[in-house]
Design a protein around this nucleic acid. Structure first.
Lengths: 123, 123
DNA sequence: ACAACATACAACCATTCGGTTGTATGTTGT
DNA sequence: ACAACATACAACCGAATGGTTGTATGTTGT
């Protein structure tokens, strides 16, 4: 049972290579066979095929058989799910800001707190 | 002169580890010293310090000296820049859709093309 | 039927990664 | 002054990456 974090590992890792990001660009624009993709890169067909396999395992692309070729196309939903993780991170950051605002606006009012974390030990 | 793609490599790579993503969550919520962070993970201090260094090199966090400790906090702008790369990818995908729409709406009208790629050899 | 093509995959190799321990260097509190 | 703390960094190790070549297996066009 690969959980959410495993999926995140795989997706970020898959996107952490410029060749694979470039492949994603091409196959988000439209289907490409593996060998059609391979023509664009200064490496062996096998290397490109492995890159495609990495992207496929990460769920970032899907393949469809068409005769003797394998047509790859990008899965935009997977891209969105990665973006949403980053959105969650940004949301955590917004929380910091509002906590600071709260602090400033209640500077003298002695609010007995809602914080559950072990008190940010600001000396 | 590390370009945009190098930065992308570093950021995606840095985020492709669950410990580092967890560190980002903590330091986006508020500053933490390296040793305060280290307490949360089942690994040596040195390992956590290396994770922090990876995030710092990727530009995802900044450190500030405070006495003998080094306080780390997350850079939300870097997070946004990663998100925007994903947005660009999604945008490419939208382009495919509108190209398909165009195709459908001009099905019989013999449009002499705007495509510059070597013609998607749809048999 | 068969040569050429498209793909998959194994074996191998150098490099990077994520962890370890150990050591060095500042900073602090008493 | 000095012991304890916080950090940095080097050296090392096993596993994973990103590439290679070589081989096997389908699929196609003639």
């Amino acid at each position: 049972m690969p959980d959410q974090e495993d999926a995140a590992d795989a997706m970020f890792r898959a996107l952490a290579d410029r060749t694979r990001r470039d492949i994603m660009r091409r196959i988000l624009a439209g289907e490409h066979s593996v060998s059609a993709l391979a023509e664009h890169y200064p490496m062996s067909f096998a290397a490109v095929q492995k890159h495609v396999a990495v992207l496929e395992r990460a769920g970032l692309l899907v393949k469809r058989r068409h005769g003797r070729e394998q047509l790859a196309s990008g899965d935009v939903e997977a891209i969105r799910s990665v973006a949403s993780m980053l959105g969650d991170l940004e949301q955590i950051w917004r929380g910091r800001i509002s906590r600071i605002d709260e602090l400033l606006s209640t500077e003298t009012t002695r609010t007995t707190e809602t914080t559950n974390h072990p008190t940010p030990e600001e000396k």
